[in-house]
């Protein structure tokens, strides 16, 4: 009798979910946000359809404020795997001059990320978007279904979610409605790193500690990735040994001081860490229940 390990069970579950979407929905897309969760999701999608390629494109909603290393990694990955990559930028937001410094994190995230995502899904008429979100990330995510039904306006109604007994997903929807589907729902941060190590999955080098030019701002180490970030009086750029636990827009993503330069180091560091993964994310702290609010508005 073969006893599947914890990770093998999670892997099988995610592949099942990915296949179920492709078998029952019209036009899926994989939201590729370049981070470690997206890397795992993409890897699972490749496995699910092997020897064929995944029958859906990747979509990156580019806020224009991502780390440059992320963009390079994104283009390299899509090229190496020969996958279609759609990059969408909310041009209305660009014209209005929206940015994390000019508009604040809340408006920036809403316009460039949430509205940008909705635009892209509507433009290409995607009816399902895979996301790499996990339930262990945040409290309102813990209550999210694997198949999360969104109205024609992309809204999430936490009080009207479909039950998901066994692995039976009700994938029926009305015209205009769409799903956000989260194959990694039951994974933890630790599972993600273990799997990356086990399967040798490439990730953005920013996850590994290296000397980087950072600025101390609002209690976080912000990496000055380009000259759009102006230094306030008194702020100095220092070179420190840092790495990132999550990746997003560079002005909104705090680095942690670390010596962990390999996967083994990262896993060891995580085991002894006393801070949660999203601690460095500025947008989560915009107010109690702010993630729930964003999700209701269409954030994935």
């Amino acid at each position: 009798m073969i006893q599947l390990s914890h990770l093998q069970k999670l892997e099988a579950e995610a592949i099942f979910i990915i296949r179920e979407v492709v078998a029952t929905c019209d036009k899926p897309v994989l939201l590729y946000s370049i981070g470690k969760d997206s890397a795992v999701l993409l890897h699972l999608a490749l496995k699910a359809f092997y020897p064929a390629k995944p029958p859906f494109p990747l979509l990156h909603v580019d806020t224009t404020w991502k780390f440059r290393e992320m963009i390079a990694f994104r283009d390299e990955t899509a090229g190496r795997l020969g996958l279609d990559l759609i990059v969408h930028v909310n041009q209305d937001g660009v014209r209005a001059g929206i940015g994390p410094f000019a508009s604040g994190s809340r408006v920036h995230t809403d316009v460039m990320k949430t509205q940008g995502l909705k635009q892209a899904l509507d433009l290409h008429k995607f009816d399902v978007a895979f996301g790499g979100a996990r339930r262990d990330e945040e409290k309102s995510r813990a209550k999210e279904r694997i198949f999360s039904l969104r109205s024609a306006e992309h809204r999430w109604d936490p009080k009207n979610q479909r039950p998901e007994p066994w692995q039976l997903f009700n994938t029926r929807k009305h015209k205009g409605e769409s799903f956000r589907v989260f194959p990694l729902s039951n994974w933890t941060e630790r599972d993600v790193w273990d799997y990356i190590a086990l399967e040798n999955i490439p990730v953005v080098p920013l996850y590994f500690a290296a000397p980087r030019a950072v600025v101390r701002r609002d209690g976080a180490w912000i990496m000055r990735d380009d000259e759009r970030m102006e230094l306030a009086p008194g702020e100095v750029v220092e070179t420190r040994m840092v790495r990132f636990r999550t990746l997003g827009c560079y002005p909104l993503t705090g680095a942690v001081e670390s010596e962990a330069a390999s996967l083994t180091d990262i896993i060891a560091e995580m085991r002894s860490s006393r801070a949660s993964e999203r601690q460095g994310r500025v947008i989560d702290h915009d107010g109690a229940g702010s993630m729930e609010q964003k999700k209701q508005e269409g954030y994935f």
């Binding site: 390990s5 990770l7 490749l46 092997y50 020897p51 086990l198 896993i267 995580m270």
Partner: peptide
């Protein structure tokens, strides 16, 4: 990356083969 146009067995190691450095929860 595991699923290139080769045989998948060649690029994706069996989980039992390499568990060094993983956190203890992996197995």
């Amino acid at each position: 990356v595991a699923a290139e146009k080769k045989r998948p067995g060649a690029t994706a190691p069996l989980p039992a083969n390499d568990s060094s450095g993983l956190s203890e929860t992996a197995q």
